[in-house]
């Protein structure tokens, strides 16, 4: 009777440092951030509580509203785009094409680069003076125009494009692994029934890949929320504030504008938003199923 209890306490003991780190580094700093957001802190944290004043200030800022809207637009386009593109690439590679290994490496390669590098590459490509636009014009197509990064209506889509270029390869790799796991018997059965391949993909294979899709969505959502480096390298939030992102708003106020009260308020709003959207969904995806499984 005593042996298991003893083993349990040893395990707990060993895990204690880990728990301490988790509680202090993650939950502790999170709570500290929330606490600062209720103070009048400027450059350094102070204990002068001002209630919801920072939040009022936050939501009266056009820049914050625009950056929240941008995050939503960017998020929806980026996640759906990366899923669709990645899945299509995986399907193409799954046809046992020649040079599959080479192609797979090429498609996955952008993911090996940091967002900063991605941003810089696309900044050059979309720079009207030295990128694609100039090259095509030099070929003789004088009216050709491709300068998204400096166009205030298109800058946000420039971010989406660069993001897709980077992340589609990852989705492709995930999906390809899933496709390879689909039982050959299913394909044989569908061929006997004379079902066109696209219908099999859409109605049989995609539902089977559900866990992988969930993983991909979680990974992609994380990069949407923390979208900072890509924005800084590609457009720096401009022209004007047209491609601003919440993370950039937070960083600006945290460091250069000496406004950590406002910055932490913005960070708290981001946290709440993410929690409100993701937590119920992840709960439904993972936990409901395990409980169902347990019941059965």
């Amino acid at each position: 009777m005593t042996a298991p209890r003893k083993r349990l306490s040893t395990a707990t003991l060993v895990l204690l440092p880990f728990w301490a780190v988790v509680i202090a580094a993650y939950i502790g700093t999170m709570l500290w951030t929330v606490q600062i957001s209720f103070t009048a802190s400027k450059l350094l944290p102070v204990d002068d509580y001002v209630g919801f004043a920072q939040y009022e200030r936050l939501f009266s800022s056009t820049r914050w509203i625009v950056s929240m809207q941008n995050a939503v637009i960017f998020g929806v386009l980026f996640i759906t785009g990366a899923l669709v593109l990645g899945f299509l690439l995986a399907v193409v590679l799954d046809q046992r094409v020649r040079f599959e290994n080479t192609l797979r490496t090429i498609f996955l390669y952008p993911y090996a680069m940091s967002f900063i590098v991605t941003g810089l590459i696309w900044q050059w490509l979309m720079n009207p003076g030295l990128g694609i636009q100039k090259t095509v014009r030099d070929w003789g197509f004088e009216s050709f125009s491709f300068a998204w990064a400096v166009d205030r209506d298109m800058a946000l889509y420039a971010l989406v494009l660069a993001g897709l270029w980077q992340a589609s390869g990852l989705v492709m790799a995930l999906m390809l692994a899933g496709l390879r796991g689909v039982d050959e018997e299913i394909w044989k059965a569908s061929r006997i029934d004379g079902i066109p391949a696209w219908r099999v993909y859409l109605f049989v294979v995609v539902p089977m890949l559900r866990p992988l899709i969930v993983t991909a969505v979680v990974l992609l959502s994380i990069s949407v929320v923390k979208a900072f480096d890509l924005v800084v390298a590609l457009t720096n939030g401009g022209p004007g504030i047209s491609s601003d992102m919440p993370a950039k708003f937070v960083m600006d106020n945290l460091f250069t504008r000496q406004n950590i009260g406002l910055a932490t308020a913005a960070a708290t709003v981001m946290l709440i938003t993410v929690a409100a959207v993701l937590v119920p969904w992840i709960y439904a995806e993972y936990f409901r199923k395990t409980r169902k499984g347990a019941a059965a």
């Binding site: 400027k42 820049r63 401009g238 004007g240 504030i241 106020n253 406004n259 406002l262």
Partner: peptide
């Protein structure tokens, strides 16, 4: 902080 807010206003008008 005010300098930052003025920057925001000016850059929105300019662009």
């Amino acid at each position: 902080s005010l300098a930052g807010s003025v920057d925001d206003v000016v850059t929105q008008f300019w662009n």
